[in-house]
Design a protein around this nucleic acid. Structure first.
Lengths: 197, 197
DNA sequence: CAGATATCTAAGTAATTGCTCACATTCCTC
DNA sequence: GAGGAATGTGAGCAATTACTTAGATATCTG
């Protein structure tokens, strides 16, 4: 941890500013979850956030910057959760750590499936910053490191396969109305163990 | 088969018209594969197709109609392939039919991964027609019927899970540059058999 | 060829959208 | 309270976009 200030882009350091910054991100997130990219425009984000367009542009240089910031935050949350899940892997049985990993993945994807899908689509056609791209790599590498620690032969490819397959599984369940993480976890475990056998 | 005429929306029956219709769809498909929804606008579709905007609107009532028609066609291709794959399932071993199904799924998704992702995203925020929606259900039902035929306990949920997981697996491999269907088939088989065990 | 029908053109319109800027308000320090 | 810095406003501009329409061109039928 470097400091206590959160330090949005190039912007304010004070309490009011911080509140506004969060309000904008929250409004944008809600719009993306409800209506996808179609109604995601600066006027509407500003309106939902309860600020003016001018204010919005004091915090984010472009509309895309709002999107990438949301993606960056979500990715960071995911990466941190995976790292925490694997931190004791040296002392744990394989299945134990795997369960922690799956729990994190399920929690991350099942809650806002429409938002998750929108962000994943947006990524594919957005020029992402280095940091955001690095986070994606780090996520797969964290999973790969876990597999490698347990003597898996092709950890990187297998990790990418599993990350993709699990995302597809959880996403399709989430979009068709499932909300129970426990039920999801059982099937995620089955899928993973089956593929790794 | 009802007739030899393809019969776009409400439109022409003659050879010239048929060519134009296909040109528009092909142009739209190429744009979606290359740039996603961002550059998918009627002026550009018309330009790439080599016709005027007016002509485009003689074949499709709205921009969204072009999108839904592409989705409908792709879904129909997929469903037909799956039906063909399962038509002899009564006389075949489980693994034999499964392989045919997986081959169809891999072929369908690995060739144009960016297009596939774009269409899947578009679906989530598009009011689809009855026929298109029915196709989606039919795809899962075809897979479920195969599982049920082999005495699977929860064929519908398992089919949906597998369709989702396989899509995620193939999509993530495709987007990270893989193009070999044979290599993909092996891992798809591993994933499916592992989950079904 | 004449007339009817089918197909196509592209300039134009109204609406939307990303973003700016000249100015207003609030906050901090003395 | 004065003055300056930080933060906020929202009308409005330029660009884009979905779609229309009045008319041109091609094709068919006799």
């Amino acid at each position: 941890m470097k400091s206590t200030s959160i330090n949005p882009r190039k912007s304010p350091k004070q309490a009011r500013a911080r509140v506004t910054f969060d309000a904008i991100l929250e409004a944008a997130t809600r719009i993306l979850q409800d209506d996808g990219l179609r109604k995601f425009n600066t006027n509407r984000v500003a309106e939902v956030a309860g600020v003016s367009v001018g204010t919005l542009y004091q915090y984010f240089p472009t509309k895309e910057a709002i999107l990438t910031e949301i993606i960056r935050q979500k990715r960071k949350l995911m990466l941190d959760a995976l790292k925490e899940a694997t931190q004791d892997m040296a002392r744990e049985r394989f299945e134990e750590t795997l369960d922690k990993l799956l729990r994190a993945a399920v929690a991350h994807q099942l809650r806002w499936p429409k938002l998750a899908r929108t962000l994943e689509y947006a990524e594919a056609f957005l020029p992402l910053e280095h940091e955001t791209d690095a986070l994606k790599v780090a996520i797969v590498e964290t999973a790969a490191a876990f597999l490698a620690h347990h003597q898996h032969d092709t950890p990187v490819q297998t990790a990418r396969d599993l990350v993709g397959a699990l995302r597809g599984l959880i996403e399709s369940a989430g979009l068709s109305g499932e909300t129970d993480p426990a039920a999801m976890l059982i099937r995620a475990r089955k899928l993973s163990l089956g593929y790794l056998r």
